[in-house]
Write a protein that binds this DNA or RNA. Structure first.
Ligand SMILES: [Zn+2]
Ligand SMILES: [Zn+2]
Ligand SMILES: [Zn+2]
Ligand SMILES: [Zn+2]
Lengths: 140, 140
DNA sequence: CAAATCGATGATACATTATAGCAATTATGC
DNA sequence: GCATAATTGCTATAATGTATCATCGATTTG
């Protein structure tokens, strides 16, 4: 059983054959370091179709929304207009996008997380969420 | 003459009657502290129409794109799907969005800017651009 | 000054991403 | 197994933004 299927069970999200396939594909999407996973809906539909080509794009959209609202996956809107998805991780991370290759590098930085909380506080706010994306080109 | 009209002249961006109106509206959009300006295309078209109701939404789109590509204004994609605009400022700033009211608070923080450069460098990248948005609720 | 030229405009068609409606199918609880 | 409720696939629709194209208007050329 895939990691995401297990999380669905734990959270009481009903599973169907289609959702199980989408869960499997999402679970397998974890990027090895250096890759650029975080697939978009079309890419996911392609991967899903390799397992069962009768699953419609509408179901992919609906299931991703369901998983996202249940906190099982995360949606990102990088600079493209379309959403990209990844399985939720235990430890929060942010992203650096290689502007030349599109490669996505994940990073964790405690200092910048704390700094954001501090900035919000100074402005009189409690930080609820944040978006941090770095765009860069490889040093030579 | 509006601030943005002046910048157009300086950069050699050709001005028309329509563009002058849009430049004026954008120039007037600078938020006083506490406001939530950074208007979207529809809002801008509304404001533009008050001055000249024959200006089409297509021209607003085209002119905003032109101004943006010339570095005269900046486009932001907050969490809504539609773009919002503001005049470019001398000093770079980031945004905190009040999740309850939609209010947008601008802030400048040298430390977080430097930290981002440092993080990119550590990953082997030169930082070219970044997106930093804080979402929070007012402390009571 | 008139003609030719070139870019900008307005209206509309189209593209893209995503959601909504609905009949048919599937899963669930008894 | 049967009734009920949720889910699916298909398609239509919504929302945001871009492309097309005939027309307009400004500018240059002779
Ligand atoms: Zn973060
Ligand atoms: Zn990630
Ligand atoms: Zn910044
Ligand atoms: Zn701003």
């Amino acid at each position: 059983m895939s990691v995401i299927e297990e999380k669905c069970k734990k959270k009481g999200v009903r599973l169907t054959e289609q959702r199980r396939v989408i869960a499997k594909v999402m679970s397998d999407s974890k990027p090895t370091f250096g890759s650029k996973d975080h697939p978009d809906v079309d890419e996911l539909h392609k991967r899903v179709s390799l397992i069962d080509k009768r699953i419609s794009i509408a179901t992919v959209y609906r299931t991703l929304k369901l998983f996202e609202e249940s906190g099982i996956i995360e949606r990102h809107d990088f600079k493209e207009g379309k959403s990209r998805y990844e399985p939720s991780t235990d430890e929060h991370h942010d992203h650096l996008i290689d502007v030349n290759t599109g490669e996505i590098i994940e990073f964790v930085d405690k200092d910048i997380e704390e700094l954001q909380i501090k900035i919000a506080k100074k402005l009189g706010y409690n930080l609820i969420d944040h978006k941090l994306e770095l765009y860069g080109s490889k040093k030579k």
